[in-house]
Amino acid sequence: MGSRGVGQVRELFTDARLVATRDLRIEARSRVLLNQVAPFALLVLVLFGFALDADQRTLRTFAPGLFWVTVLLAALLAVQRSASIEHADDAHTGLRLSGMAAASVFLGKAAAVFVQLIVLEILLTVGIVVLYGSEVDDPALLALTAVAAAVGVATTGTLYGALASGLGARETLLPILLLPVLAPVLIGATRSFDDALGAAAVDGWAWLGLLAVFGLVATVLGALAHGAMIED
């Protein structure tokens, strides 16, 4: 890679950091994650408990699936919030005119959503331990699965958030577009958590590999495709 290429890569990540820092600052100030998304997610966990009749053995068995369904539902809110930051007062037009690479915007926004999802996953992990009585057998697998799945959800969500915003109906359209695409993450992360929480005898590390590949592909495709999504 020549010096020009190095400069472009540096600019890409400098701009991405600028966008991520801005989104996280907005989140820290508005507290949408802490005051709305996290309570919603914890409420869903509690409701699952009611629906399954508070049987701890059943809850422990299904905790991985319930955990990830809850993460995906909460992620919808986080992604919608991320997209609305740009569209609330037409700031996305300014971004298009700034000359900033669309890939930088994508990576920055996805990174901010990723951080929020990690916070959410930590809260929900505490939630399933306390509410469902789950026990962590393999903390490393649990942590890596949480990170890999969050990458996949954040990148795919950011891309589809931009797509739904461009189509002008993001609140109603996003779940329909995004949830089917995230089915591999739901399946892989649930299987991996089955292993990490000792809920079922599966090879969680193999499923973690699938999640890692999904996250990598989603990141690359998102960075390449985001420009087309934010154009009129």
Binding site: R22, I26, A88, D90, A91, T93, G94, L95
Partner: peptide, 25 residues
Amino acid sequence: LLGHSTGLYGDLTVAENISFWARAA
């Protein structure tokens, strides 16, 4: 381009908004 919308981020301060757009440029 100055349009009908302000293109600002409501949860950021005035200084943060101007600084962001300077760095974005």
